[in-house]
Amino acid sequence: MTYTSFLKSECLVLWRRKYDIFNALLFFIMVVVLFPLGVNASPEFLAPAAGGIIWCAAVLAILMSIESMFKEDYSDGSLEQLVVSGLSLPLLVLIKISLQWVAVIFPLLVMMPLLSEMLYLSSGIFWVLVVTLIIGTPSLFLIGAIGSALTVSIKQGGVLLMLLILPFYLPVIIFATSAIQTAQSGLPYSGLLALLLAISLLFLVVSPFMTAISIKASVN
């Protein structure tokens, strides 16, 4: 096994499993649609709340796609093979997380213009939303991977994963939605974007190692 062959096989698996990602995206749209229907459909409510709605829906959709991240690899033994491959496990984990991120976030971004139109988000704010998603969501995947590796051996681990991981998502959600709201009220928001980026970078360093430790503990 080499890093390149691992990358290729992961891409293939993601491609074969494209319907899972598609389902996560549909779920994302469903959650967004719930808000106008369930709370209030007027532009006065939706426009200020749009950032929060989209971010909360994105967090839930990401959690869904992350939950099964290592499940199949765990049950068929490929995770074990990664551990004994002699390659750096943190690096392999990082490759896997990055691919997952690309596979989920790009379709999400493609749908963003449509959703921001539905939630009456102005075009200037739309770009702030896109930037927060691009620099904020890596940390969601990186943190989620730790939780996913920890719960991989538990049969019904989904709810536990949410309980475990959601508190860690709070700062990201807070800073991202605050950045959008600050931009909406015309104030400078670059500091908040920097904070989002800092969290993502922090977990870029921490998460691969923690995930690798968790995988090694789970595969036994």
Binding site: I143, I146, G147, L150, S153, L164, F168, V206, M210, I213, S214, A217, S218, N220
Partner: peptide, 14 residues
């Protein structure tokens, strides 16, 4: 062993 490692990981990340 797994439970010990897991709570340690999540505690440290916390």
């Amino acid at each position: 062993a797994l439970a010990n490692k897991s709570v340690a990981v999540i505690g440290a990340v916390g």
